[in-house]
Every structure is written in structure tokens, then in C-alpha cells.
């Protein structure tokens, strides 16, 4: 993967996504929403390329419009009445609120798509393994068994098909019965084979006291730096939140704090926080080019 942020330590990844997701969910201030949406889109495109653009236009744009339209249709609060539809008032406030919550919703979805691309299963396992060591092994085993079961289910289904007893043979009732039978074979097979897995585990000393958990991640100098930066930025944004820099009132009328120098500072902090992975990528690209041109 060409994403530099994905190569950072899982703790950095996880801290970043937790912060960004929570902030995106709870800050309804238009500036914050705009920053979050823009940053999420840029990062998603960086990570997934054309696929992300297609996803955003095909699914996210219609969803955004839908959520933005649904709210004024059902929510009639607000002072500024624009028009009456079937005796129901459509208010400016509810339209604005609809757009805002649509943006919030869409940016959270896009953030999650980025999260999925960056936080692979082994990173997740590693993080939770540090909290609960036994859990990390269980998760890893589950991830091992799911593809194994799927493959075996296919083998069994093919074998049963060849004696005319698959879920694709016969009428509905027979199909259901065949399906249950395949499941029963799969379970028997799994239990039988688990005995050998247990042997393999015990013969490699599973159950000894003081089991450790190995990972190939290293917390380097850059991770330290990134985590500190993240901490500072999060602190700034939270401080801004305490000082009401992000608060907005939608009903019955829209009330928003005037932008001051201090609020610009908070906006900047939030922007930097959201753009951190993209910034890191740009910086890496730039150093690479510089080194390369010198050669």
C-alpha cells in the first residue's frame, strides 16, 4: 500500500480514527462538518483511488440528498417558514439541519471506509491483544477458521451435489433438509479436526504459564512524534469545544457564535488533525521526490 499512515504503529492509527470519528459524530458546526467531510473524501480517494470516487458519487451523494430532504419533510420545527406543503410548514431551519446531519452522516460513513482500509485485522488483533492477551489469540484463530470453514463447506456441498443431495437439488423441502445435512457434516468435520488442532497447540506448549504475545509492529521515533502531534491537536479541538467554539443552535432559530481569531485557531487545529494522514503522505512523497532527484 502506498499510504504512509497505514505503515505507522496501530496505536497511532487507532487514536486518530477514534478522535476523528467521535468529533465528526458530535460536532454539528458547519465549519467542522465541512472540514470533516472534505478531509474524509480526500483521504478515501488517496486510499482507494477510483473506487472511492465511484463510491462517493454513486452512493454517498444520493444518500446525502435523501437525508437532507427527509428531515424537512418530517421535521417542522423552526421559525422561518418558507412554504406550506399539504398544510405542513417547511422551515429553513429544518432544511439546514437536514443538510448538516446528512453531511455528518456521510462523512462518518466515509471515515469508516478509510478505517477499514487502514486498520487491518492484525492491527486490531494486536491492539486488543495488549489489553486482553487471550482475546488476541482467539480473534486470530477465528480469522483462521472462517476461510477454512468456507472452503470445507464448498467441498462438502460439491460432494453432496454429486450424490444428488445438495441445496441446489430437489424441491424446497428437500433443499432445506439437504442444507441442514451439509451443516451437520460441516460441524462433525470441524469438531473432529479440532482435536488435531488442539494436539498441535498443546504439543507447542499452549497452556504454559506466562504466555507472551508477539507482534511485528515497532513503535518508532516517527510514531512517537505523530502521537504527540495527535495529542496536541486533539487537546486544542477539545479545548475549543469547551469554549463553545463548535456549538450551534438550529431550533427554533439558527444561532452561531461569531468567528474570532480564537475560533480560527480551533478550526485550523481540527483541519490539521483531520488532514494528518494526507499531510503525512504529501510530506513523504515530497521527501522521496527530493531524494530521488538528487540521485
Amino acid at each position: 500500500m502506498r499510504d504512509a499512515f497505514s505503515r505507522c504503529h496501530p496505536v497511532v492509527n487507532f487514536t486518530y480514527f477514534t478522535a476523528v470519528l467521535l468529533f465528526s459524530m458530535f460536532f454539528m458546526h458547519p465549519v467542522f462538518l465541512g472540514i470533516s467531510l472534505a478531509a474524509s473524501m480526500v483521504y478515501a480517494i488517496w486510499l482507494n483511488g477510483g473506487r472511492a470516487i465511484r463510491f462517493q458519487f454513486l452512493y454517498m451523494l444520493p444518500m446525502l440528498l435523501l437525508v437532507a430532504l427527509i428531515n424537512p419533510a418530517f421535521n417542522h420545527e423552526g421559525m422561518t417558514i418558507l412554504v406550506y406543503v399539504n398544510d405542513n410548514p417547511i422551515t429553513l431551519e429544518s432544511i439546514v439541519y437536514g443538510v448538516a446531519s446528512a453531511v455528518m452522516f456521510v462523512s462518518v460513513v466515509i471515515w469508516f471506509s478509510c478505517y477499514n482500509a487502514v486498520m487491518t485485522s492484525d492491527k486490531f488483533i494486536y491492539l486488543f491483544g495488549r489489553v486482553i492477551p487471550a482475546l488476541s489469540l482467539i480473534l486470530s484463530m477465528v480469522l483462521r477458521f472462517v476461510p477454512k470453514f468456507k472452503a470445507q463447506a464448498r467441498v462438502i456441498s460439491n460432494a453432496q451435489k454429486c450424490i444428488g443431495r445438495d441445496v441446489s437439488n430437489g424441491n424446497l423441502w428437500t433443499r432445506a433438509r439437504n442444507g441442514v445435512k451439509i451443516l451437520s457434516i460441516l460441524v462433525t468435520w470441524a469438531l473432529e479436526n479440532a482435536i488435531e488442532t488442539a494436539d498441535s497447540m498443546r504439543s507447542r506448549g499452549y497452556g504454559l504459564k506466562g504466555r507472551t504475545s508477539f507482534s511485528h509492529y515497532r513503535f518508532g521515533q516517527r510514531d512517537k512524534l505523530l502521537l504527540t502531534t495527535l495529542g496536541l491537536l486533539i487537546f486544542c479541538v477539545l479545548a475549543g469545544a469547551l469554549l463553545q467554539e463548535n456549538s450551534i443552535q438550529y431550533f427554533p432559530y439558527i444561532k452561531i457564535n461569531a468567528a474570532t481569531a480564537r475560533s480560527v485557531l480551533v478550526y485550523t487545529a481540527y483541519f490539521l488533525l483531520c488532514m494528518l494522514p494526507v499531510g503525512l503522505n504529501i510530506w513523504e512523497e515530497w521527501t522521496w521526490r527530493r531524494l530521488y532527484s538528487k540521485l
Binding site: 485485522s121 492484525d122 479436526n193 479440532a194 498441535s200 508477539f214
Partner: peptide
């Protein structure tokens, strides 16, 4: 197949 416990080669 049955002897492998975890999902990754390194693990």
C-alpha cells in the same frame, strides 16, 4: 491444515 492455529504465517 489442522495443525495451523493462527491466521498469519508470522503469527
Amino acid at each position: 491444515d489442522n495443525q495451523i492455529v493462527t491466521d498469519k504465517v508470522w503469527h
